[in-house]
Design a protein around this nucleic acid. Structure first.
Lengths: 209, 209
DNA sequence: TCATATTATGACCGTCGGTCACAATAAGTC
DNA sequence: GACTTATTGTGACCGACGGTCATAATATGA
């Protein structure tokens, strides 16, 4: 029914609005102090209404985290990395991904929160699945490039997983450093971090002869 | 006065007891649900007494985190890494450090919590200083080895900071992976992670020719 | 206009981190 | 041992939190 649809649309529009308002509040320091009630007040709806959309505060945060990572994946995919030299392509991809994190700093508290051990432990099955699918999507996109580089003899031949573990660890650790800000890193500013880690990751990717 | 000392000793003994009990409680899943009151009850003292020792819950957690990292540094220092081959020494050190984290899993929630951006942002000046001193202590211990390897031409010559940034990022990211457990990592078990990352880090350390 | 189904709401609950006026205890003095 | 004084221990209390649910408000269909 047309009426039904309009109601449905209205419901979804409101959900998107809650997410936007929540992100705006969560992006500022003292984000721990942002309660569901404050989000509701800022959206001009009742607290109970928020819980019609999200079963818990964690679910709201999880949804925002997924939005961030899907945005990252789309950003990487739409970027044309078809340069002549595959190694240089990787260099560009790393930097692109790092800069995406810096550009969307507003997600930093949320993404870090959702990546914590305890969050993952209390996450329900469907979130776990979503996490895994995301990981797989990144793999489906990146793995062929690594394999091609191995085929061309540009990087040391070894199991794909071995490479991915190192890359992922290094990447996640770097994101933490970048988001923590230079006050908490003895070693230089953002640009210096990106440059250094990119070089480090390329060396790790290529491998020891 | 002797009486004064005994009282002082008693006070400190109790403080250590609080820390031990708190660690025992914080080490189990659902650690977020551990309140100061529960720690007090488990130590058989009043809640207010806990606050005579620690200004806040965060301070208690911070103290435990420092205990962990000082233990790690001591563990690394007491380990004799004077092998013939410097590169093999590094390999041994990486694995030693990773295994230390796995052995002391009871600190995992605490250490991860204290490394979060928001925790660092609300940390007061003295904690910040402690953080930095710890970082410097690790540097004082590790830097000479890297410089020696560079001197011997075993690794590519470049600024020390550049190497340390990559190493730190990769190390921290790996610890997160190890502590998250294999349910949250597409890529194999703990041993496989340690092996892969160690190889990745060695390649990053040596650098591209 | 009314009956019915759906959605929105905020008072309410148990619990939390943190405070503070006061109780308990020890030390020092005679 | 009794009295004063200084220090340390305590749990009732506070405001705020995440989450619930009976009820109010609103839209739909006849």
């Amino acid at each position: 029914m047309a009426g039904m649809d309009r109601k449905q649309r209205e419901f979804e529009r409101r959900e998107a609005e809650i997410l936007d308002v929540a992100l705006a509040l969560f992006s500022k320091p003292n984000w721990e102090a942002v309660s569901i009630d404050k989000i509701a007040k800022a959206t001009d709806i009742g607290k109970g209404t928020v819980y019609k959309h999200f079963a818990s505060k964690d679910e709201l945060l999880f949804r925002l985290m997924m939005r961030f990572y899907h945005g990252l994946l789309a950003h990487l995919q739409e970027h044309d990395s078809d340069q002549g030299n595959i190694i240089e392509s990787f260099q560009g991809i790393f930097q692109l991904a790092f800069r995406y994190h810096l550009k969307h700093r507003e997600y930093r508290y949320i993404v870090e929160y959702c990546n914590r051990i305890d969050f993952k432990e209390r996450a329900d099955e469907s979130w776990h699945t979503s996490f895994m699918e995301l990981d797989k999507a990144f793999g489906d996109w990146g793995d062929p490039m690594i394999l091609a580089a191995m085929e061309q003899g540009l990087i040391v031949r070894r199991p794909l997983e071995q490479i991915n573990i190192g890359m992922k660890a290094c990447f996640e650790g770097t994101v933490d450093m970048l988001w923590a800000g230079k006050d908490w890193c003895l070693h230089g500013d953002e640009e210096e971090i990106i440059e250094s880690v990119t070089e480090f990751m390329l060396a790790g990717l290529v491998g020891r002869v």
